[in-house]
Design a protein around this nucleic acid. Sequence first.
DNA 1: AGAGAAATTTACAGTCTGTGCAATTTCAAA
DNA 2: TTTGAAATTGCACAGACTGTAAATTTCTCT
Lengths: 201, 201
Amino acid sequence: MRNAMDNESSAPEGWREQKRRETRQRIAETGLNLFIANGYEATTLEAIAAASGISARTFFYYFKSKEDILLAWQQGLPDAVRAAILAEPPDQRPLHLVRNAFLKLAAQFSSEQAAAIDRILRSTEQLRASNQAKFLSMEKATFDALSEHWPQARRRKALQVVAMASVGAMRLSVDAWADEAGQKPLASFIKQTFSALEAEL
Amino acid sequence: MRNAMDNESSAPEGWREQKRRETRQRIAETGLNLFIANGYEATTLEAIAAASGISARTFFYYFKSKEDILLAWQQGLPDAVRAAILAEPPDQRPLHLVRNAFLKLAAQFSSEQAAAIDRILRSTEQLRASNQAKFLSMEKATFDALSEHWPQARRRKALQVVAMASVGAMRLSVDAWADEAGQKPLASFIKQTFSALEAEL
DNA sequence: AGAGAAATTTACAGTCTGTGCAATTTCAAA
DNA sequence: TTTGAAATTGCACAGACTGTAAATTTCTCT
């Protein structure tokens, strides 16, 4: 029961949550640095926990697996995708709209840190596989956001396909960008890939 | 050194290889049946090895991981994709060519067993991730085969995009097909998805 | 302030996948 | 029949992850 001089629920329960987030963040950073320094497989949970100042068991209270540390860095992605698409004016063809949204998004997600994470994600078979899940979540977010722009049921199939092709184009762009070690900006790859897509179909 | 009454290399060294393949096949079947019966995670390596009549250690002489059993069932996929695409007459636009190749392919890979494997592959997070790798390998096979039809370097980007969109369409088709528990044939979903793709772009 | 509930942290023991190593068995070729 | 490579196995071990129960901390309510 709350009453009187009670600021909603921001201070009381918010403190716990905030501390929890801070700890989680600290572990994620510690882990990432160790991965960068020693490689993913060579870094044991024990090491991450020790460097984070917690017990090995407590690690699993914050992350459900070692891999989860890396996924945590992209947790904001689906929301960002969704927001970027909804921010676009709907007077464009869906494919074009998504292209423009992704172009704006590319700025945020092509930092040096993002590149480092990407490098780790490509380093082992297991991580490469789970990295694909990222694109699946992007595809879902894209489809959901497009569905808000065009809620008509008869557009469903079309939007699904647009989401698939757009995210696929994004993936090809990121791959090409990563292969060239970041000479040209990601945005130029995105433009090129989407152009090729429209030209070929 | 081979000489005289020597039938190439089919009988002599072939015997070992054949037995090896048989053992591998037996393990794969035993494992799959156990997965179907008890679920993937509930089936231990120990159980698979015992039911296959080998030691747990020997299992790893045939498969590099438990997961690998499932991947073994799709080992022929890339070659089949490649063959199907190369078998198509090249007097069609690339996207259309791949569509027709996939339609012919769909017959082979929509057996009851394939559906069972697909169900297992969707049952856990880990397997869902590695299942995506299947589509990546299809994409690569598609691109490689298309590159033989159109070897010109300036078509590279375009073919890459076609491979991505085609395999993506295939994935959406399989998903829709699996969701409907196989009421309509897979082929009809493929036609529909490719139509939507061409319409939207 | 103090009792009690709830969240956090930890130790301990145990399961399971996967690897390294060395010994043993099997089998095709000389 | 001998020999060497491939196949098979046991054993020991690392490392990720879970179940449980107990301690410790952090609120909440009175």
